[in-house]
Amino acid sequence: MEKNVSNIKRLSNPTSYFLSVVGFFILVGLAVGIVYGATAAVQYQWRWFKVPQYFMYKPTVTIYAEDDGEIKSITEKGGEVELLVEEGGETHTYMVPKGSLSLDEGDMLSPGDIIAEYKDGWKPGILLKGLWLTLKISFMSTIFGILLGIIGGVARVSDTPVLKWSAITYVEIVRGSPLLVQIMIFYFVLGTTINSILSMHGMPIIHPEWYGIMALSVFTGAYVVEIVRAGIEAIHPGQIEAARSQGLTYFQTMFHIILPQALKTILPPLAGQFINLIKDSSLLGMISVTELTKATREGITTSLQTFELWLLCAVLYLSMTFTLSMFVQYLERRTANK
């Protein structure tokens, strides 16, 4: 016993701790060096300076002449310029920022000539849009998944056959098939049927994003059912009997007595499930939902910045999952103190 204690003390002394920290950063440096060495071997040119435009950018607005014409007048109004252009016998008015004109009053125009060119206001880039959509889908799927999981978990431990068997059937079917297959069924089978009915009645169709949320919610809910069931069964059965003896119904007992206590047990596995949900949302690109992964692929298609954008995509997913993990740890500490 003393030998074990002395070994632990030796490992936890300041010198060993410092060396361990140095060793960690050496390993990180080696990993980064290997990546850069590999890119140098294939002569890849890093272009990190182009990455910010995928988050925020100022689009270039170009006004072209549509027909033969003439610039009739140029009038300054504050920080803008009012431009009157006669094209094809009609007079068109353009309001453009001051300094965006390269023509003068009286200049003649031909079809395709540039009348004005300027930078518009800031717009969200494709990665920022994809990140927002991933967060939105993950949040909504988490809420619906929790609701399905709690209802299914309570039904799973019920003694009523219709509730218990329905919950078991739901869990086995969903957990027994791949998520990608379920997404395809929701979109191409269920979605096609529902949208066809809506179109026949002159109603707007449902966007693919919502079928993706349905698929993720149902898939996550099946795993939450088993997590909730395990948490409920960890509570002593005597508490259920005591609550029922006080006149509480089965569902009142579950939602007021059992589930609040089970929360402490089920929080860690729930966190893991919802972290998986954020990553699983990347599959929705298969049904034309431009979440973060699909947005990254589209950015690579237009810029050929393969390494930068995929690494950035991984960092963004890591930031989301790490933030969720820290939040759940905070909740665990709060519930442990109560």
Results as ranks from 00 to 15, higher is better:
114 I>F: 03
316 L>R: 01
60 T>L: 14
85 V>E: 02
135 L>M: 13
138 S>I: 00
242 A>C: 01
317 Y>I: 08
326 M>F: 06
256 H>R: 04
221 G>Q: 08
165 W>L: 15
321 T>R: 00
58 K>F: 14
246 Q>P: 07
19 L>N: 07
171 V>L: 09
144 F>I: 10
161 P>Y: 07
250 Y>W: 09
172 E>C: 04
75 T>G: 00
167 A>R: 13
209 E>S: 15
253 T>N: 11
44 Y>T: 05
114 I>P: 02
158 S>Q: 07
67 D>E: 00
166 S>C: 02
278 I>G: 09
87 E>C: 02
21 V>Y: 11
11 L>H: 14
172 E>H: 05
12 S>Y: 09
259 L>N: 07
192 T>P: 05
71 I>D: 01
1 M>R: 14
6 S>Y: 08
69 G>D: 00
202 G>T: 00
118 Y>N: 05
171 V>G: 10
25 F>Y: 09
24 F>W: 06
330 Y>I: 15
81 V>Y: 10
232 I>E: 03
75 T>S: 07
322 F>D: 13
309 L>G: 04
155 A>E: 10
184 M>H: 01
288 S>A: 11
190 L>K: 04
33 G>K: 06
289 V>I: 02
313 C>T: 14
251 F>P: 09
244 R>F: 05
78 G>P: 09
306 T>P: 05
25 F>Q: 08
56 M>P: 10
244 R>G: 05
159 D>G: 11
118 Y>M: 06
144 F>Y: 01
110 S>C: 03
121 G>R: 14
326 M>Y: 06
297 R>E: 14
307 F>M: 15
2 E>Y: 02
38 A>N: 13
179 L>H: 05
319 S>C: 13
138 S>R: 01
305 Q>W: 12
